[in-house]
Write a protein that binds this DNA or RNA. Structure first.
Length: 269
DNA sequence: ATCCGAACCTGACGGC
DNA sequence: TGCCGTCAGGTTCGGA
């Protein structure tokens, strides 16, 4: 479900309800997610919530002595309940707060994760991540340097977390369209100018999607239950057989690394 | 080192 | 109605 804009949208929606409140306790109904839910989380009680941050597609809930690291996987979702409500089949984790609010985690496919970490720099899942896409350290020079030896197609390459984090399957296709770059292009073959266009496109596509509350394709909802509105601005993703909004040529779909890719054969070279 | 495919899991949908 | 194959917004792991 979630790429970076959807995770950031969730963070912004949830933070005002829980930061500064006290976490009373956690309820873990189904600990078998991607990895077992960390035992420490089950044992937390009366913990002030200091912060709710984001790194890549991970949410980081800051407590006094450590962090709850949350990943939504493919189908995870977080929402705030104002009062107790009977859990349904895929409601695996609740955090209950002093103001009566409940943060409820729902994840049918259970590819998500709830991990405890006292030192984020030691985290197995965070340690090897590349730069944030919206930071200055992700720039054309970095892209060219990292791509120099890479024969991989550019589409799966920009989804590699060691190059840049947060670019998932939707925004990879959208960014390449905006940059006018064909998804099959070899990473090492990008010119300086193309690298600059690609970096700029990734940043603007993600930034615009955050401003729209993310992309709702089937089930993504913001923490208040509203959908994200960026789907209306998708140029290629999910539009195979439909006309390109720029030139009218029919949009093509294919696959890279077992993920579907969409592009315009006329606008992208 | 690099790259690709399989794996984790459930649900929705289309075809027969 | 039911069964089967395919697809789905992510990430890690193992083998070539």
């Amino acid at each position: 479900m979630p790429e970076l804009p959807e995770v950031e949208t969730s963070r912004r929606g949830i933070a005002p309800h829980i930061v500064g409140e006290t976490l009373l306790y956690a309820v873990v109904r189904h600990p078998q997610l991607r990895w077992p839910v960390s035992e420490e989380i089950t044992q937390l009680s009366d913990e002030p919530v200091i912060s709710l941050e984001r790194r890549a597609k991970y949410l980081l809930l800051g407590l006094r002595h450590g962090w709850i690291i949350i990943h939504l996987g493919m189908s995870g979702r977080l929402r705030i309940l104002s009062e107790e409500k009977a859990p349904e089949k895929h409601d695996h984790v609740d955090l209950v707060f002093s103001n009566g609010k409940i943060l409820r985690y729902t994840d049918p496919r259970r590819f998500g994760a709830w991990l405890w970490e006292t030192d984020l720099t030691q985290s197995r899942v965070l340690r090897h991540l590349g730069p944030e896409p919206l930071s200055d350290t992700f720039n054309a020079a970095w892209l060219m340097q990292k791509s120099a030896t890479k024969k991989i197609a550019v589409k799966p390459w920009i989804m590699d977390n060691k190059l840049v984090v947060g670019v998932g399957n939707i925004y990879a296709s959208e960014s390449l369209f905006q940059a006018g770059i064909h998804p099959d292009r070899t990473a090492s073959g990008l010119t300086q100018q193309e690298s600059e266009r690609l970096v700029t496109s990734i940043k603007t596509v993600l930034q615009r999607s955050i401003e729209q509350g993310g992309t709702t394709l089937r089930d993504f909802l913001q923490s208040d239950g509203k959908p994200g509105y960026f789907a209306q601005q998708l140029n290629v993703y999910g539009r195979a057989g439909e006309p390109c909004l720029q030139c009218g040529t029919l949009i093509i779909s294919g696959r890279h690394a077992q993920r579907s890719t969409f592009w315009c054969p006329h606008c992208q070279h």
